[in-house]
């Protein structure tokens, strides 16, 4: 089992690396123009000339997927960044303060958790309007509550541990204990959760793109690419199938790494 897990880490890491490179330097993968197409090459199936085929305007789908990874992955990464930073901060304050402030903060977190998170994202998007950054903020805000809860639980767990008790007897101060024992030990589970949340964020960003609330056309984004292929579902299968497979591959890779991280932090 452990061997099988380790075996899966390398392909997952490679998929992620490829996606990250595509997002940062799409030119390395594809020189074709993702926005302007050749009308003479409309709706070509995947083949030697066009790896993923072409769309109704003759644009190279591979290039559009590669260039789309920037919008999709950036939004997901920013969302997780927002969620981790705000959530961890809130959880840390609640866990260290304890008492009434803790109770008050966690009540607020409970309310956020009671609202279905996709609705929360949509509320933010409704206020801010469509766009990659707007979607990122929405996804990040809606996921922050989960991080707050996990961070608080971790802080409380570590603070109650025998080694923190030993630190107290050793005369280590509260602030030093927080920095050297509590934060490092709480960060393992948080990192695992952040990785798993990244997979979720990619899916949510794609859903919003599909619904038309994501990146504004003609910029490509994975979810909106699939949406754009809908009219050709019966005739040009690759327009919807291929970008979806890319999303599945990336999310699977991220989730796999997240599970490995989680197992590792639980084993300690």
């Amino acid at each position: 089992m452990r061997f099988a897990r380790r075996l899966g880490v390398l392909p997952s890491a490679l998929v992620l690396l490829a996606a990250a490179v595509a997002a940062l330097a799409p030119g390395l993968f594809s020189t074709a123009d993702p926005v302007r197409g050749d009308l003479g090459e409309r709706l070509l199936p995947p083949g030697a000339g066009h790896l993923f085929g072409t769309d109704e305007l003759g644009r190279d789908l591979f290039s559009r997927v590669v260039h789309g990874s920037a919008a999709s992955l950036q939004a997901a990464a920013i969302a997780v960044g927002i969620a981790v930073l705000t959530g961890a901060m809130i959880g840390l304050v609640a866990g260290t303060a304890g008492g009434r402030l803790d109770g008050l903060i966690m009540r607020g977190v409970e309310v956020l958790l009671a609202v279905p998170s996709f609705l929360l994202v949509l509320v933010v998007v409704a206020v801010l309007g469509p766009g990659t950054r707007e979607v990122a903020v929405g996804v990040g805000v809606s996921a922050a509550a989960v991080f707050a809860r996990v961070m608080r639980a971790e802080v409380v767990r570590v603070r109650g541990s025998a080694y923190v008790e030993a630190a107290a007897v050793s005369g280590t101060g509260r602030a030093a204990t927080l920095l050297t024992h509590v934060l490092p030990n709480a960060s393992g589970p948080l990192a695992a959760l952040a990785t798993l949340e990244l997979g979720n964020a990619v899916l949510t960003v794609a859903s919003l793109g599909f619904l038309g609330f994501g990146a504004l056309p003609p910029a490509p984004e994975w979810g909106s690419l699939i949406s754009a292929g809908r009219p050709y579902l019966a005739s040009a299968w690759w327009l919807t199938t291929v970008p979806g497979l890319v999303i599945v591959a990336v999310v699977l890779a991220v989730n796999h790494l997240g599970h490995v991280l989680r197992t590792r932090s639980e084993r300690r």
Binding site: A162, Y163, E165, A166, V169, S170, G171, H181, N185
Partner: peptide, 16 residues
């Protein structure tokens, strides 16, 4: 610091 403490469970008393 004048009184030190050793607890029962050596598996949880050391920061991993």
């Amino acid at each position: 610091g004048r009184v030190q403490f050793v607890t029962q469970n050596p598996y949880t008393s050391l920061d991993p």
